[in-house]
Write a protein that binds this DNA or RNA. Sequence first.
DNA 1: CTTCTTCTGAATCGTTTGCTCCATAAAAGG
DNA 2: CCTTTTATGGAGCAAACGATTCAGAAGAAG
Lengths: 217, 217
Amino acid sequence: MKQALYNARVSQQQRTRGRPRAFDRDRAVLDAARLFWRRGYSGTSTRDLTAALGLSTSSLYAAFGSKAGLFEEAVRTYAERYREIYRQAVAEKDLRTVIDRLLIDSVHEFTRPSDVHPGCLLSSAAMTDSTSTLDTSAYYAELHGWNERALLARIERAVQDGELAAGTDAAALTGLVQSVVHGLSVRANLGATHEDLMATARLAHELLCRHLTASTP
Amino acid sequence: MKQALYNARVSQQQRTRGRPRAFDRDRAVLDAARLFWRRGYSGTSTRDLTAALGLSTSSLYAAFGSKAGLFEEAVRTYAERYREIYRQAVAEKDLRTVIDRLLIDSVHEFTRPSDVHPGCLLSSAAMTDSTSTLDTSAYYAELHGWNERALLARIERAVQDGELAAGTDAAALTGLVQSVVHGLSVRANLGATHEDLMATARLAHELLCRHLTASTP
DNA sequence: CTTCTTCTGAATCGTTTGCTCCATAAAAGG
DNA sequence: CCTTTTATGGAGCAAACGATTCAGAAGAAG
């Protein structure tokens, strides 16, 4: 199994034998992710990658196995960041803070100044999978399924704990919050400014909190 | 200018001289759109297109000029449907109906039973433009800019007409509605059912209307 | 009928694609 | 020192790509 070799060498590289790698592997993954983000998987050739990353074809294949392997690693790397946003948000104590953190952190993630083209990498990369070993569409659905279930569980817990009224439709509430988050990503992608998105996040938070208050027994 | 020839022959074809076209042009555009939607521009080869549309290479090039030309026509065709949703929604009399129509019509558009893979075609096709004659990213931004401005103007008019309180932040309200609509598209894309999205649309409408009522003088 | 115009199918062109091979370079182990 | 191990750079392969060409087919106009 050759693939294991590429994944075994994690970012914390310990000194091994042989000639040391001349480029920063993690940096290369991030640069590749940005390229895939903008032009899609099929739209990004290996020549584009080697040119942008500043390394030769053989170096790329020695480090990542294939174009699909590099793509897969780029997707997984970015995916963890989104999962982390949900993980931290649902850990908050009261539901208002959960929603607030989720919305605000999402806006910050979608409009990072380091990324020239903001928005969620996955929503664009997920479409053009082609013959990738990773079924990106399924992976993307799985990731967002995980995030959505985490949020739903948190809201249902709030209902059980009496933080919300017993009759509250947790699923519908989850769906709305998810829609707003996804919508923020799309609008970031379309060029909305950080301030625009923050205004949306604040208004959404206000309306949702008012709804929660109204539902509170 | 050869391109003019391809565009001149509109769907309402009047009998011309020469051998008649053996396939349905409009149907071919829609089928191509679905293919581009799923696999992106670069991910869809001309062989894929000719196979799925059931026509030969020369027929495709005679009818659309190039792969980019077919893509451009597919994008423009779909874009008009989305523009129409906004056009009809903002024409409604009171603002509550505007928002209701926009949300509900969007859900219906994003989960049409005829389309196997639902969601907004443009949000996926816009990423993988490559060397297309149409700068899809810019076209996409322009379309949604038009829609957003139409909605913003409608909300501002509501403020001026006294339908809403004078202090209402029309821009923030527009941003939130837009985010929800885009979010509905993304979730449809991720496999959310028609009922899920309808529940989201209803809840969003409820919260927004409550907000409007609270803002009313 | 003939002529004119347009569409179709097959073959194919030149380019780009993802990827491999191999000689060489640079470190570590003995 | 020499051997082993890994990375680099460049040349290049087989396949797929977008696009073109051309002989023939099919209807409209005269």
